[in-house]
């Protein structure tokens, strides 16, 4: 069970109060109608699954109901930082060369 610092409540709270919402910083395309099927498909379905540092979106569901971001190491499970929506992470992620997702 994680011990998560809620950047809004400014306290560490138990994981039971939170709900994970997947990868952070997924911006909805500004002009959705102009997206190609491939672009829209990437936005809809393709997610990172890194070994190491990852930015995740969580919600403090049983607390303040606010969404916020976490930089977490998926190997050690250490949380390096939490920050509000709209803020930038302080921890830099290593450059990873992503393979072009395959479309079937």
């Amino acid at each position: 069970m994680f011990n998560i610092y809620c950047p809004y409540c400014e306290e560490h709270r138990e994981e039971e109060e939170f709900h994970p919402s997947g990868q952070a910083h997924l911006a909805r395309p500004a002009d959705a109608d102009a997206c190609t099927d491939k672009e829209w498909g990437d936005f809809l379905y393709f997610r990172k699954n890194p070994r190491g540092l990852h930015q995740e979106l969580w919600q403090h569901t049983a607390g303040c109901r606010k969404f916020f971001n976490i930089t977490r190491d998926t190997v050690s499970y250490q949380i390096l930082e939490t920050y509000k929506v709209g803020q930038s992470p302080q921890v830099k992620l290593p450059e990873v060369k992503l393979e072009e997702p395959r479309h079937g």
């Binding site: 409540c9 109060e17 049983a62 607390g63 303040c64």
Partner: peptide, 9 residues
């Protein structure tokens, strides 16, 4: 505080 209470809130 808002928190959990058993399986309720």
């Amino acid at each position: 505080v808002n928190t959990t209470f058993a399986k309720a809130q």
